[in-house]
Structures are given as C-alpha cells and as structure tokens.
Nucleic acid binder design. Structure first.
Lengths: 242, 242
DNA sequence: CAGTGGTCTAGACCACTTC
DNA sequence: AAGTGGTCTAGACCACTGC
C-alpha cells in the first residue's frame, strides 16, 4: 500500500509516459500517424478524454501534431514549416531567410572534457566534428562547428552531408533515427578571430554572435553540440518572450 | 443568419475574449483572484468545463495563474519568481543574477520616427526617455535606454525611479496600471562606442550584445521600447527552444 | 458516409487550502 | 466542513478529411 514519495500522479501523466515510451522505442516514426484517440483509450483502458489530455500536452511540447479529420502525427523535421524550427536568425528586412549550406569538415576524433560533459560522455570517447558555412544572398553569415557522439552517428561522412539538401535535423532523422525535440542556447557577443574572419569574409575584430547549442532527443538525452557564429550586420536573432 | 467570414468560433474562445476584456478593463487587478470557475460558468451561462478550457489557455499564456485550493489569480510582476520574467541574462557560473539598478536620465522629448513607429505613435509625439546601468557583483554589465509614451506614463521622474526598488515592470504595474504581457527581442553583436565603454567600464571596441525589445500590454499594444547592451564576458543570454 | 479530432455538457470524486 | 482548482468519465454533437 505504501505509495511512497511522488505522492500523486494523475492518470493522464501515466498515459503521457506510455506514449512517450512508444515514441522513444520508435514504435511510431516521425511523420507517422499514431493510433486514434479511441484506439488508445481502449488500449490503455481509460476514457477518451484522458487520452485527449495526454495528447494535448505532448502536442503543446511539439512532440505530436494534431490534424483535425486526419489524425495525430509524430512531429518531424521533414515538414515544410518545421524545416528551420530552431533557427532564430532573421534578416532585418523581414524577408524569409534562405540559407545555402557548405560543409567543410567531417572528421572523427576524441572528445575533450568540455564537449564530453555536455554530451554526457567520458572525455576521450570518440566523437564526430563537423564544420560548415551557411550563406544568405551570396554572403557567408554563419560559421558552425558541430559535435556528435560517434556511437549514434556511425559512418557519417562529408560526402553524405554534402549530398543532403535540407536541414541537418531532417538528415539525422532519416539517416540515424534521431529526432531532436528541444534545444538550449547560450548567446554571447565575441570578436572575429583570423579563422572566423576568413570563413565569413569580414575584417578581424568584427562583432559576431556566438551561439552555443545543446540539442536533445526524446529521453532528454543530449546528442548534438553546436557552436555557431552569426554575422549580425544585416540580420538578427529573433526571440519572443512570454 | 449570415455568419460571415470567421466561419466558426468555439464557445471557450468567446469566454477567453470576455475574460481578456475584463483584464483590460482592470475589472480584476494583477495579484487579485478572479471569480471561481463555477461563478464564471454561471455568469457566462456555460458549463464549468468550458470556462476551464478558457482559463487553461490564458494560464498557458501567463496571463492568469492557477493555485489549487486557492483560486485563479491575475498574473503580476510583483511576485517573487516573476520578478525578472523577461530577463534572459545569466551568469556563466550558473549562479542567480542579482542586479543593482542605477537610473541616470529620465527626460521628456519628442519621439523620432523609428520609436514612434514601434510604439504606434506619430513622429513628434511626446515620449519619455530613460537611461540606466545595471551592475552585478560590483561590475556594470547592462546599459539600457528605455522609451515610453508620455501619455500613459505622465509625471514620471528620475526620483520616482530611483526611489523604487525592484523590477521596472512591477513599477509600471503599481504606478501606471500597466501590466506587461509579452515582449519581442532582436539581438545583435556590436562594438562598444565611447559612451558605452564609459558606462560599462570596458575598452572601446569590446563586443557587446545589443538587445532591442518591444513590450506589450493586454490589448497587444506596444508600450515600451528598450535598447539594452549586455557585457557578455562573464554572463550569457540564455534561451530554450522547443 | 465513416473516421478523425474538436467542442460542450453534467456529474462524480480527488487534492489542496482555509477556517 | 466548505470552497477552490484538478481529474476522470460517458455521451452527445460539430467540423474536417478522404473515400
């Protein structure tokens, strides 16, 4: 009888947990429809309203997408309007940002202690390091370093990346069954060093936005580190506060 | 019979609109409890569940705060944990940021066309301009210019600001019945000019985060412009992406 | 027309706060 | 014990999609 510590957990939370487990277990894949509310209600032996509340919250977290008349779908970075869901950079003009990708480096190495800690690995664990430049209107405006745990992204090569057109998160999804759910960014202002100046074709000492991102999958596991530098001469980082 | 354009509006949306209207009309003030779900259900002649859904969404937007057993309250910037709800700056150390305020300027003038446009005024309309510096651990790290429409903030003086201890948004709330609901920020990297270098006690040419904010009240009306510069040597702008 | 999600209701009961 | 929000149910009906 001793219901210990966590004093009380509503039914819909348990349903949420079970749906989440199915997502983690890849029982339903990104883009797929999950079973209807009625089916899930039967499966979990609860009322439709309870399933509904569970799905509502998962949809609010952007893990699921509801489409009236059609069903409820697993969120995917492949979708049109999801393409650059985590990108907050925006031209000052208000136009839509269209980025052109160029991958420069993709090599395997050993992680230093900083990256290892962020990815919850041990220092020295094998890691993939990618460099890329992104251009807008012919001008390079983003230089980005990416670190991935080699275990989850075995066999990744520069050629695969350059063959891919579209967002990197869609690539991870389709090639490595890894769906990014959320991310945390830490932003600073820095000065361009020689290397950055070269890649972004700007003078040394130009101000740049430094954006360090950790991205997470379903189980809240960090699986990607990014360190981007944005040239914000003609664009800005856009943020809504609620 | 001609239900025109907006084809369909659920009941709870209409309830939301009516609650919002009461908030705008200051029928319930920040910090106050609004009537119970049952009372509202009677008032609007709908079921409790419908009122509930309306309140749920307003609470999700941080306009209302639910407290089990106590009631539902109008959100306020006076609350402990709401003090710096819109401030995303955070020490790299992970400690809690404790800012010390110093107001430098508070003067009335005429708005230029840029500020006027953002505040939806006419160029030349009277406007209040405030400068301040904020320090952490004895070091000045934020320089901020603030613009307010003179109409809504009549009689604001430098002395009033310096007499106030606490967040500016709590001040607006208690002195000018103006509650901020959301804000939009545009962030860039810039270099410190002579003036900024002086205020932040850093070398000219140091990299700074430029943060331009527009803050809105209930009716989606912009009522405050801020242009802040953050020294991000030992702190960063923290952002969560979902 | 059948199937999906979306809205609305009415009622029971639980958890938390206050008196 | 009374009052608040929180959970759960069962059932009716509406809106949208696709066959």
């Amino acid at each position: 009888m001793s219901e210990p510590i966590a004093s009380f957990s509503p039914l819909y939370e348990q349903i949420k947990a079970m749906i989440l487990a199915s997502l983690q277990a890849a029982e339903w894949l990104p883009g797929d429809a999950i079973p209807s509310e009625m089916e899930l209600a039967v499966r979990y032996a609860v009322s439709q309203g309870t399933v509904r509340k569970a799905i509502d919250e998962l949809a609010a977290q952007n893990l699921l997408v509801r489409r009236q008349g059609k069903g409820t779908f697993v969120a995917t970075h492949q979708e049109e309007d999801w393409q650059y869901r985590f990108l907050r950079l925006e031209p000052d003009s208000g136009e839509k940002l269209q980025l052109k990708n160029q991958f420069l480096v993709c090599e395997c190495g050993k992680s230093d202690s900083h990256i290892a800690q962020l990815l919850k690995l041990k220092a020295g664990d094998p890691i993939i390091r990618i460099d890329r430049v992104q251009s807008y209107a012919g001008k390079p405006i983003v230089f980005e370093e990416i670190w991935l745990p080699e275990g989850r992204f075995k066999g990744l090569t520069l050629d695969m990346l350059n063959a891919w057109s579209g967002p990197v998160y869609a690539f991870y999804e389709s090639e490595y069954a890894t769906h990014m759910v959320r991310a945390e960014e830490q932003i600073k202002a820095v000065l361009a060093d020689e290397n950055l100046a070269l890649h972004l074709q700007i003078p040394i000492g130009s101000p740049l936005l430094s954006v360090e991102r950790v991205a997470f999958t379903y189980d809240n596991k960090p699986v990607e580190i990014r360190h981007a530098r944005y040239d914000t001469s003609d664009q800005h980082y856009d943020n809504k506060l609620n």
